[in-house]
Simulated scan of single mutants.
Amino acid sequence: MEDVDIISAGKPIPRLAKVSPGQGRTVSVEWSDGRVSVIDLTPHLSHRAFVELVDDDVFRSVEADPWGWDIRWPSTKHAAIPTTILQTLEDGTYGKAHTAPDKQTDQG
Results as ranks from 00 to 15, higher is better:
70 D>T: 11
77 K>C: 02
74 P>Y: 15
8 S>G: 04
79 A>S: 15
73 W>T: 08
18 K>I: 00
61 S>Q: 08
42 T>P: 00
93 T>Q: 01
39 I>M: 06
93 T>G: 01
5 D>S: 07
60 R>W: 03
101 P>S: 11
46 S>M: 02
1 M>T: 10
2 E>G: 05
25 R>G: 03
34 G>L: 03
11 K>H: 04
93 T>C: 03
101 P>C: 08
68 G>Y: 08
72 R>S: 10
99 T>M: 08
107 Q>R: 13
86 L>K: 04
107 Q>D: 15
104 Q>A: 15
92 G>D: 05
52 E>H: 13
41 L>T: 06
101 P>Y: 06
89 L>W: 01
14 P>Q: 05
47 H>W: 06
102 D>N: 14
62 V>H: 11
52 E>P: 09
93 T>R: 03
18 K>A: 13
60 R>L: 02
35 R>S: 06
1 M>S: 12
31 W>S: 00
68 G>L: 11
37 S>W: 00
79 A>D: 09
104 Q>G: 06
86 L>G: 05
15 R>A: 04
97 A>F: 06
1 M>G: 14
52 E>W: 00
61 S>M: 07
32 S>Q: 12
107 Q>T: 15
1 M>E: 07
59 F>Y: 09
90 E>D: 05
26 T>H: 12
78 H>K: 14
33 D>N: 10
95 G>T: 11
40 D>V: 05
62 V>P: 09
66 P>F: 04
69 W>M: 11
21 P>H: 07
30 E>Y: 04
95 G>L: 09
105 T>F: 11
27 V>Q: 03
108 G>Y: 09
31 W>M: 00
25 R>Q: 14
52 E>V: 06
7 I>L: 15
18 K>N: 11
35 R>K: 09
70 D>Q: 15
47 H>G: 13
40 D>P: 03
70 D>V: 12
72 R>W: 13
8 S>C: 04
26 T>E: 14
13 I>D: 14
37 S>I: 02
65 D>G: 06
20 S>V: 10
105 T>M: 09
26 T>Q: 15
35 R>T: 04
3 D>F: 09
37 S>C: 00
23 Q>A: 14
91 D>M: 04
55 D>V: 00
41 L>G: 09
48 R>K: 08
26 T>V: 12
85 I>H: 06
11 K>M: 05
70 D>H: 15
66 P>V: 03
56 D>R: 05
29 V>G: 02
88 T>Q: 06
89 L>F: 00
51 V>E: 15
80 A>G: 12
41 L>I: 12
